[in-house]
Design a protein around this nucleic acid. Sequence first.
RNA 1: GGGGGUGUAGCUCAGUUGGUUAGAGCACGUGCCUGUCACGCACGGGGCCGAGGGUUCGAGUCCCUUCACUCCCGCCA
Length: 594
Amino acid sequence: MSKYRTHTCGELNLDNKGKNALISGWINKKRDHGNLLFIDLRDNYGLTQCVIDKSSAKFKELEKLPLETVIKIKGKVIVRSKETINTNILTGEVEVSIEDFEILGRTKELPMPVFSDQEYSEEIRLKYRFLDLRRKKIHQNIILRSKVISFIRSEMQKLGFLEFQTPILTSSSPEGARDFLVPSRLNPGKFYALPQAPQQFKQLIMVSGFDKYFQIAPCFRDEDARADRSPGEFYQLDIEMSFVEQEEVFQVVEELLVKVFKKFSDKKILSEKFPRISYSDAMLKYGSDKPDLRNPIIISDITEIFKRDDVKFEIFKKLVKSGSIVRGLVAKDTKDKTRSFFDGIDKWAKDQGSSGLAYFTLEKNQKISGKGPVGKFFSEDALKEIMKEMDAKIGDTIFLSCGQKENVENILALAREKIGNELKLIDKKIFSFCWVVNYPMFELDANSKKIKFSHNPFSMPQGNVNNLDLSNPLNLKAYQYDIVCNGVELSSGAIRNHIPELMYKLFDIAGYSKKDVDEKFSGMINALSYGAPPHGGIAPGIDRIIMLLADEKNIREITMFPMNQNAQDLMMNAPSNIEENQLKELNLSIKKKD
RNA sequence: GGGGGUGUAGCUCAGUUGGUUAGAGCACGUGCCUGUCACGCACGGGGCCGAGGGUUCGAGUCCCUUCACUCCCGCCA
């Protein structure tokens, strides 16, 4: 028998009636009636109410113990009278009558209460993470995370995938995010980099003939944090398969994600066969490559309307003449909304850094007219055309943005979300997945005006690989795909380019010479030259999946020991200063900041 | 690197137009209370109002600087 317990705190019920029990845990809550004391004892599994009255010699001592003291209680399981049953806890039909107890771990005064639904500052939560993690909601989130990862692992194994570890100390790569660097003692002046993803390794695993690989892989990127993005490290379900085309990757991932989301959430999956949307369609209709498809609002391009003579909206017309575009969206059935609602949207848009949103509401008395600040600029014919183009009806409001494509996409994507929320168009009880496909291989860097890889440089371009027209690289599409769920980018993947000659050509377009490629990607390019199978994969973000399942907006709520926004661990005091001799060994010196 | 928000008791927060001794709930301490489950009641300890400077007869409150936390933009193949 265990020295500490015969049962956990979530275990006792009517079956244990009259039995002796030994339970250990934290004092979650006391209710002291002076002559009668209730103690809720908590462990990982649940709560058990324990009771003692003043006739017991132990009463006085127990009464004095502060919350969160760890104790062992010895007592008898007794059945609660009907009116004192607590249906909120697993053990609510019984309680333990305390005969003896022992203090296992004392506590100082708590810097933050454990028993409370209150919210606390991140600072205190992160510094005392071990207390924070005792609290119910986050404790359950972390358990959920563990279960999801175990489930994924076993499903992947069932699907015939093999799990492999890849190095944590590897080489810095020029593409992508900023690397975390680790100085090498044995190779003075040289550095390892922590992997941003096991990208090259997983491809090397395919070249090595292992066929189907997965890993719950830590990834390290030294970029600034966001609510949904930890600084430093995050986890991906890294997957790679040989001898597959895009569709075969889709099949595996759809099946897996549907299983995971069905098992761990009550929310409905809108379509188990994820709809596919081309990147260009997504940018047009949703202004974003991570559209929230729960939101029914769709963006349309009506630039042409502003070239008509019966449209007098001179500001937009002038901009259109000089190359701007006009796109807009329809807020359905908003004729009864107040002026302040519309102005609020316009003001909000300006706060987002745009030039604002023009709007008018469609009315019909004798004839169709536009009501609102810019409504008068449109003839009835023009309005009819707009209604046709945008699928708008009388009583709807049209919001318009005019400007450079990128800015228009941006503000309308935000407006779509904002208006969708304000009009309560977004069903919070569903998951709406989609594939975004046909990403461009290259894009123009806005600052340098140079052509760069738009996603992953190792992706396979679409078209006949033996006779690819590279004269207009910006038109080239790649077998590159993302999964988006409820507006969250869940994963990114691609069919890889396994043909070295083609890879040199593509890198050349992005400004890398053959020599550059040979140096920077030596492991990969070398391997591809010795008989590489066609292969492809994907890497769903574990943290984001858990966030969706746990319905949390902040990644720290599903991360056991996260860093704060400045990439500091307040509990462990990382990063920290190091000893002079450590620096010396590494041949490093710190330049003082002035 | 840039913009917004917050900072008052151990914790969560009030604090009016600049005006006496800065409040509440929880936690902690003392006492009362035998069926509570957010138990109740009474009393008590606890404050460099993030830090520094300024305006003023007088600053938690106004101004400047700075620090911390957070959200967003940039960044994140």
